[in-house]
Design a protein around this nucleic acid. Structure first.
Length: 715
RNA sequence: GCGCUCUUAGCUCAGUUGGUUAGAGCGUCCGCCUCACACGCGGAAGGUCGCAAGUUCGAAUCUUGCAGAGCGCACCA
């Protein structure tokens, strides 16, 4: 028995050493596995692409959970003989990364991005992203992730950029990408548009004002935003509303708080006759709903009264005022003119930007969109339908299943996807202009062209991830072998952001699904059930945890008892518990190796020892089914329980008298079976606790393969 | 408003298609340095499975209603 077993198990020292030997072996790469003869060349493939962590800093426990789950499936499949590929990568995370740097520069140098200029700003972000990348790679390795580093990708590297431009052009040529003036969610703080999904609604108490545009205007109107009323072009009432029927179609002129306005009364079913006065003042340029209603009644969209800095652009007393100040001025004016009829409190959901917290201002802007309700040429279906179909048909399975309903619900409500962003970090829109001419895709070589200033929504490039990482648009072997991928594992919080967009992009580009199964994990919370955050200081850093208790222990703590789709709580106590389990396993190995190092592997087995093997075989079958059916939490708990409370507590205890006894046959039988049991336990536990199992395996008297990570999963 | 999830031991959670005395970890109490491990061992206490009704030979598990907690989407001007 090696001397190392005489000391308690030292996870930290062992883990980094073991990872280095794995990496050196090249066995994370399926091609290398085939070359070295541990995997058959014609074996079926199994692939996962790593959800690329944002290069905004470092990984958190949610990432650690993701890595644990994915590594379990990858290691399990590798041991089952699949050509197993897990592709690593990172995400440039456009807005998130840029805003980190912007804040930092503002704080340290008091400068804005416009002070630095586009090139300098991009240089700064690039430097930061590279540092983040290195930290993240180090963390991924620390957690034991058996990723094929030879295939690492970045959402903003040249190969991925080429894929982005290619898809953009194809969608543009298919008529699915268009540029149009639409109401977008403008974040005045971040100075960019954001998508519907980047909005957080905050409930606030607001005042609902009931007023008239002028003394002779026949209909009272209710609003929470009086300042926008200088931009009104109409009033909408419900077609069946008898109170106002007589006024429909009539037009009125007024001077509203120094601003001349022209109002037409229209009838529209969208209006709720029971809310407020049953009449809506229409401000097409500053409200999405009003824009749509105005569209239906051919009212002007062009009256813009608020700019990108959320300031008033009209002449008169409101000129240049912030919207909040303008609101007070308008109310003051209404009161003095005797036009204000009522002022009541109401609850209102205020749209705020997820990244900056700024209050979202709906503004009409020229933006790029992907049209989701238009038929895709050659497919006979809209993008929306293409997103729904594979999940409906079962071609894509979501675990846990009930998220399928959430997915459907979201897509059914989906509107055109605004893909342009007014930030600098990211894929620049691949469109060039020269006068009336336009070029899409690759940059023209002759002079005089100006590229679109905007960049693409970060999820555009993330949406290509399953195939852009495998070499598309080239028809590579990897693409043929590993796509569609088998599993996509991520947090349920990005079901819409990412999963849905990958389905959209892959269906459009390749006419197939990006993955067969979606496994959604829950949020990792602290011991009190709070979200982990910097401000609360309750973050657990995976690196610290690994240094203290070992990555194996952290992985077990994140897996056991954690069902997919359910939030979990993690504490140092729980992780500590599994570090003790690691030590237990260490001592099980010590005992068995001490007593059975010289065991005769041909010795005949006694009836009771045969039964011990049968029991473990039954457990093996259960575990295999559990993993196949995505119950890794059960498989982990079962092997934990077996190792500690069967093997150690019962089998080892009853072995002591047997091994010290005089019955040579019983002794030989027991020594042999103990060694076999240990070997099996190491294999079964390896996907969950890869480091310690590999370390013990290295001391086994006989080994099937050089490394446990490519040994055969027992049956 | 539409939809989803949860409610099981003091705490955190399992319990796969309904089937014998409902499990684990942590915690608590008692006793042990027993020659693999004190990062350990042995033992104990602790649950009317949110409430009510129904289906069934049988329900923590299925159905309905109620109560409480959380989440997603939409959003009213």
């Amino acid at each position: 028995m090696p001397e190392k077993f005489l000391k308690p198990y030292d996870a930290t020292a062992t883990e980094s050493r073991i990872y280095a030997t794995w990496e050196k072996s090249g066995l994370f790469n399926p091609d290398e596995c085939v070359k070295q003869g541990v995997t058959k060349a014609d074996a079926p493939t199994y692939s996962i692409v790593l959800p690329p962590p944002n290069v905004t800093g470092r990984l958190h426990m949610g990432h650690a959970l993701m890595l644990a789950v994915e590594d379990i499936f990858i290691r399990y499949k590798r041991m089952r003989g699949f050509r197993t590929l897990w592709v690593p990568g990172t995400d440039h995370a456009a807005i998130a990364t840029q805003s980190v740097i912007e804040k930092q520069i503002k704080k340290e140098e008091g400068k804005s991005r416009h002070d630095l200029g586009r090139d300098e700003m991009l240089k700064r972000i690039g430097t930061f992203a590279a540092e983040s990348h290195d930290t993240i790679v180090n963390q991924l390795k620390t957690m034991g992730a058996s990723l094929d580093w030879s295939r690492e990708a970045f959402t903003l590297d040249p190969a991925r950029s080429h894929a982005v431009r290619t898809v953009f052009k194809q969608m543009y040529d298919a008529g699915l990408i268009y540029r149009g003036l639409r109401i977008v969610n403008w974040d005045p703080k971040g100075q960019t548009t954001i998508s519907d999904d980047e909005i957080i609604y905050e409930e606030r108490v607001a005042k609902l004002y009931t007023f008239r545009y002028s003394k002779d205007f026949p209909i009272p109107v209710a609003t929470t935003r009086p300042e926008t009323k200088v931009g009104d072009v109409g009033v909408a009432v419900h077609p069946d509303d008898a109170r106002y029927a007589a006024f429909v179609g009539k037009e009125y002129d007024a001077v509203f708080c120094d601003v001349p306005i022209h109002i037409k009364v229209v009838a529209d079913k969208e209006v709720d006759p029971t809310f407020g006065t049953g009449a809506v003042g229409l401000t097409p340029a500053h409200s999405k709903i009003d824009w749509d209603i105005a569209d239906r009644h051919e009212l002007s969209h062009e009256v813009i009264v608020i700019n990108e800095y959320a300031k008033m652009t009209v002449a008169g007393r409101l000129k240049g005022k912030k919207t909040t100040e303008a609101r007070d001025l308008v109310v003051e004016w209404l009161t003095s003119e005797g036009l204000l009829e009522k002022e009541e409190e109401t609850k209102q959901n205020v749209a705020t930007a997820e990244r900056t917290g700024g209050i979202v201002e709906p503004l009409p802007k020229l933006q790029w969109f992907i049209e989701v309700n238009k038929e895709v040429p050659g497919r006979g279906k809209t993008l929306k339908e293409l997103m729904l179909e594979p999940v409906r048909s079962g071609a894509i399975k979501i675990v846990p299943e009930h998220f399928e309903k959430t997915y459907f619900h979201w897509i059914e409500n989906l509107r055109d996807w605004c893909i342009s962003r007014q930030i600098w970090y990211g894929h620049r829109i691949p469109v060039w202009y020269k006068g009336e001419e336009i070029v899409v895709g690759e940059a023209p070589t002759d002079d005089g062209w100006v590229q679109d200033e905007d960049t693409l929504d970060t999820w555009f490039s993330s949406g290509l991830w399953t195939f852009s990482t495998l070499g598309w648009p080239e028809q590579t072997d990897d693409l043929n072998n590993y796509h569609p991928t088998d599993l996509l594992e991520t947090g349920y919080d990005i079901l819409f952001f990412w999963i849905a967009r990958m389905v959209l992009m892959t269906e459009f580009t390749l006419g197939t699904i990006p993955f067969k199964t979606v496994y959604l994990h829950g949020l990792v919370r602290d011991a009190q059930g709070r979200k982990m955050s910097k401000s609360l200081g309750n973050n657990l850093d995976p690196l610290d945890v690994a240094a203290k208790f070992g990555a194996d222990a952290a992985r077990m703590a994140l897996i056991v008892g954690n069902t997919p789709g359910t939030d979990m709580r993690i504490s140092e106590e729980k992780i500590k518990g599994y570090s003790r389990f690691a030590n237990k396993l260490w001592n099980i190995a010590r005992f068995i190796l001490e007593n059975a190092q010289q065991a005769d592997l041909q010795a005949p087995l006694s009836a009771s020892d045969t039964e011990l093997l049968a029991t473990l075989e039954a457990l093996t079958k259960e575990m295999t089914t559990d993993i196949e059916e995505f119950r890794v939490y059960m498989a982990a708990e079962k092997i934990y329980h077996y190792a500690w409370h069967e093997l150690a507590d019962k089998i080892l205890e009853e072995s002591k008298p047997l091994l010290a006894g005089t019955d040579a046959a019983a002794r030989a039988s027991r020594a042999r079976v103990l060694l076999t049991l240990l070997d099996r336990v190491l294999r079964l536990l390896h996907p969950f606790m890869p480091f310690i199992t590999e370390e013990i395996y290295q001391s086994m008297p006989s080994k099937e393969t050089e490394f446990l990570m490519v040994a055969t999963w027992p049956t």
